[in-house]
Amino acid sequence: MIDFIFAMIAIAATSNPSDPHQSQTAQAEPQLEAPAASSVVIGEGVTIGGATIIEGTPVDTADGLQLELAVVPDGVVAEPQIPTGKFTTATEVKPILTATKANWVGLRDYGGNDLVYVTHLWAWRCGLSGMALSINDGPMKDIPLPECHLEYASPNAILEGDGLPYLTYPQGSVERITVQIVYDDLSQDTATFSGSQIRIP
Score class of each variant (00 low, 15 high):
residue 1 M to H: 12
residue 2 I to T: 11
residue 3 D to R: 12
residue 7 A to K: 07
residue 15 S to K: 11
residue 29 E to Y: 00
residue 31 Q to K: 03
residue 32 L to K: 01
residue 34 A to K: 01
residue 35 P to K: 01
residue 36 A to L: 06
residue 38 S to R: 14
residue 42 I to H: 01
residue 43 G to M: 03
residue 45 G to E: 10
residue 47 T to M: 09
residue 47 T to D: 08
residue 48 I to G: 05
residue 49 G to F: 01
residue 50 G to Y: 00
residue 50 G to Q: 01
residue 51 A to Q: 15
residue 53 I to E: 10
residue 54 I to E: 15
residue 55 E to Q: 15
residue 55 E to W: 12
residue 60 D to Q: 14
residue 62 A to L: 12
residue 65 L to P: 08
residue 66 Q to V: 15
residue 68 E to G: 14
residue 71 V to T: 13
residue 72 V to R: 01
residue 73 P to Y: 02
residue 74 D to A: 10
residue 74 D to E: 05
residue 75 G to H: 03
residue 75 G to N: 05
residue 75 G to E: 07
residue 76 V to F: 07
residue 78 A to P: 01
residue 85 G to I: 04
residue 87 F to E: 07
residue 87 F to K: 07
residue 88 T to K: 03
residue 94 K to A: 13
residue 97 L to V: 06
residue 100 T to C: 06
residue 102 A to E: 02
residue 104 W to C: 06
residue 105 V to K: 06
residue 106 G to P: 04
residue 109 D to M: 08
residue 111 G to Y: 01
residue 112 G to Q: 09
residue 113 N to V: 13
residue 113 N to G: 11
residue 116 V to W: 05
residue 118 V to F: 12
residue 118 V to N: 10
residue 118 V to I: 09
residue 118 V to D: 08
residue 120 H to S: 10
residue 122 W to S: 08
residue 125 R to A: 00
residue 125 R to E: 08
residue 126 C to V: 06
residue 127 G to M: 00
residue 132 A to F: 01
residue 132 A to D: 08
residue 133 L to G: 07
residue 134 S to T: 10
residue 136 N to Q: 00
residue 137 D to H: 07
residue 147 E to S: 15
residue 149 H to Y: 05
residue 149 H to V: 10
residue 152 Y to S: 12
residue 153 A to I: 12
residue 154 S to L: 09
residue 155 P to G: 02
residue 157 A to P: 02
residue 157 A to R: 11
residue 160 E to M: 14
residue 161 G to C: 01
residue 162 D to N: 09
residue 163 G to C: 06
residue 166 Y to W: 12
residue 166 Y to V: 12
residue 166 Y to H: 14
residue 168 T to G: 05
residue 170 P to V: 02
residue 170 P to R: 04
residue 171 Q to E: 15
residue 182 V to M: 06
residue 184 D to S: 09
residue 185 D to L: 04
residue 186 L to W: 02
residue 190 T to C: 11
residue 191 A to V: 13
residue 193 F to V: 02
residue 194 S to M: 12
residue 197 Q to E: 15
residue 198 I to T: 00
residue 198 I to P: 03
residue 200 I to L: 09
residue 200 I to V: 15
residue 201 P to S: 05
